[in-house]
Design a protein around this nucleic acid. Structure first.
Length: 486
RNA sequence: GCUGCUAUAGUGUAGUCCGGCCAAUCAUGCGGGCCUUUCACGCCCGCGACUGGGGUUCGAAUCCCCAUAGCAGCACCA
């Protein structure tokens, strides 16, 4: 009870208060379905989620698919899966292509209110006029004319590029981005995968319409939308609607992974990447495959917060968050990279009982039977090494005859190993190993691990002295693991 | 070019609105130590920042001006 309370309290402390949120909020996450979600999306998704958990309310997933050029039919499903993986408190889902009729009706109303007009100017011509702060002829048309033209747009009376609906703003506005921006356009091709249409709203219109219709109270989005927020205010004013509270966070630079949907798709098609979850990509599914937990992603994003400074995303910080989650639960196993076979002279059979987790004895042990020959990491064996401690087993003396080592049993005493400053290394009984490949962003690391790892399929474990990995596949040829972090 | 936003340690972040309690918080990273049959975890110690220059003030990370830098928008993309 108290734990729950204090946890809730902690949530409160993480992010600054939202103005006007005391009685609950309605917020939304509004991705474009062009591909799976990536780390960039995670920030908006997690921030909104945290506020909804803090204040209570509804969390609307709004699929913004009003540009058929940028819709991947498979992405609808992927977006939902990715959000589910993240564990967000989504309460409602709407898809904009289902709602075109609503936007049409509102557009008619806006024209009637004199807040919008149908523009049939060539785009380049309009741009020139706009830059000169000059109205185009269409702007002076009567409401009746506009309604006729709007109807003609909807009934295929115009082809792509021949007409658009513009919002009346302020042509003298110092920021050219504000002047009479477009709200609807005509698209003859490509066909939308979900709806038959050729008049589509532009983002600024459909967003305002939906934010109003759905009762959105607070909007948290990137600062690349600051100009859009100002533009959208004109539409709110024309309708006389209440404007939500906006927060714009700064740009987040992310290095080390590919985020561009088009680049990812290209790479997948030409075989550079194995799929949307290739570990070189910054997608949620790639993180999942690498053993990053959704909680860690959310925590990392909340730690970044809603500051409006441009920042660079830190993998170190994400890994640290993930380690906090994964370290207490990951079982420990031996992995021997680049194994070399070593016959140990003078040792009778031994049985090693190694703990599955060093700080949780209750979890039990793995049993490793020594019968004479072991696998050792190649990097631990060089002519300057004369003694090793096989972890949880015994000490080994190494005598060198030129480049040829001879391994001899040197007692069970841990104290001796300590005194000799011998490395304590992971090892495997030669008769009981399974091949294992650890896939990292830099390439594959091959070796062998304990056969018991087979039972950890799908889980994150720690290979002692190597790092955390997620067991991705278990087959006859061996085990495939993905490197998570140290 | 026009418009706007931002500027705290390697990285993220608190403090900035309402100037003093900030010789600047926390986390991460890095270095060292302790613990430990992992180079993990935990614990301890340390390193490291208010972009620059003016101004206001008894006093400025905090207010004002200028400069510089970064970012965003000016799409019939979202």
């Amino acid at each position: 009870m108290f734990a729950a309370l204090s946890e809730k309290h902690e949530h409160k402390k993480v992010l600054p208060d939202l103005e006007g949120a005391e009685n609950g909020v309605v917020m939304r996450f509004a991705p474009n379905p062009s591909g799976p979600l990536h780390i960039g999306h995670a920030r908006a998704a997690a921030l909104n989620d945290a506020y909804i958990r803090q204040y209570g309310g509804r969390y609307i997933l709004r699929i913004e698919d009003t540009d058929p050029k940028r819709v991947d039919p498979e992405a609808y499903e992927m977006v939902v899966e990715d959000l589910k993986w993240l564990g967000l408190a989504i309460t409602d889902t709407v898809t904009q292509s289902d709602r075109l009729h609503l936007y049409y009706v509102l557009c008619t109303q806006l024209i009637e209110r004199g807040g919008a007009y149908v523009c049939t100017c060539d785009n380049e011509v309009f741009k020139e006029l706009k830059n000169k702060k000059t109205a185009c002829p269409c702007r002076e048309q009567s409401v009746e004319t506009n309604l006729v033209l709007w109807d003609r747009m909807l009934t295929h009376g115009f082809k792509e590029g021949e007409a658009s609906v513009r919002i009346k703003t302020d042509l003298l506005h110092p920021d050219p981005a504000m002047r009479d921006f477009p709200a609807f356009r005509i698209l003859d091709a490509p066909a939308h995968p979900k709806v038959i249409a050729h008049v589509y709203p532009l983002m600024n219109f459909s967003v305002v319409a939906d934010d109003h219709l759905l009762g959105v109270t607070h909007v948290i989005r990137g600062k690349d939308h600051i100009a859009n927020t100002r533009r959208q205010r004109y539409i709110y004013d024309h309708f006389g609607w209440k404007v939500p509270v906006y927060r714009h966070y700064g740009r987040m630079g992310i290095e080390g992974v590919v985020l561009s949907t088009s680049q990812m798709r290209l790479g997948i098609n030409d075989g550079t990447y194995s799929g949307w979850d290739d570990i070189h990509l910054g997608t949620m599914r790639a993180l999942a495959r690498r053993g990053i937990s959704p909680e860690a992603v959310k925590n990392a994003m909340l730690a970044i917060g809603i500051g409006d400074t441009d920042i660079s995303f830190s993998w170190d910080n994400l890994y640290a968050e993930n380690k906090k989650i994964v370290d207490p639960i990951a079982n420990r196993y031996f992995f021997v990279p680049e194994p070399v076979t070593a016959k140990i002279e003078g040792a009778g059979p031994h049985t090693a009982h190694a703990m599955l987790h060093p700080s949780d004895a209750a979890r039990g042990t793995r049993t490793l039977e020594f019968t004479g020959t072991v696998l050792l990491p190649k990097s631990e064996i060089s002519p300057d090494v004369t003694m090793l401690r096989l972890k949880d087993l015994f000490n080994v003396k190494i005598s060198w005859n030129g480049d040829t080592p001879t391994f001899t049993y040197a007692g069970d005493s841990l104290a001796d190993a300590r005194a000799a400053k011998a490395h304590i290394v992971q090892w495997l009984p030669a008769q009981a190993t399974i091949a294992c490949t650890i896939k990292t962003q830099e390439g594959d690391m091959s070796g062998a691990c304990e056969p018991a790892v087979r039972s950890e399929l799908g889980k994150v474990i720690q290979f002692e002295r190597v790092g955390f990995v997620k067991i991705d596949a278990v087959g006859d040829e061996g085990i495939v693991a993905y490197y998570t972090h140290k």
